[in-house]
């Protein structure tokens, strides 16, 4: 029974992700797009953690941890580029 609830939650997350993608597509400035991508990467990290339960693969939860880190670093890199025009 709980598996069905988790599946419903995963589908809900996917739908909200596409709604966020609209903001990344339409956002008038670059900062709006970065915010939308940041939100999407947090949601994907949660989604991967749920997939670990759904598929029974325990090691997927490590992937969620690494994905959260990658999303954070990507956000920092793009914001730094916006602020200074270079990455170093």
């Amino acid at each position: 029974m709980m598996e069905t609830v988790f599946l419903g939650f995963i589908i809900f997350l996917g739908v909200t992700m596409f709604v966020c993608l609209y903001r990344a597509y339409a956002g008038p400035t670059a900062a709006d797009r970065v915010v939308a991508i940041d939100v999407i990467s947090t949601k994907i990290a949660v989604l991967i953690a749920f997939l670990a339960i759904q598929t029974g693969q325990e090691s997927f939860i490590d992937v969620a941890l690494v994905y959260a880190m990658m999303g954070f670093i990507a956000t920092i890199a793009v914001s730094k580029y916006l602020e200074k025009g270079k990455l170093y």
Binding site: A31, V34, V35, A49, L65
Partner: peptide, 27 residues
């Protein structure tokens, strides 16, 4: 799994406000 998901929670709760601050500062 529960220990690791608690670690993921701690990580997200530290990084999310920091990321928001950095985007706001860049803007």
């Amino acid at each position: 799994i529960s220990v690791k998901s608690i670690i993921v929670i701690a990580f997200i709760w530290i990084t999310n406000p920091t990321a928001a601050h950095i985007i706001a500062k860049a803007k």
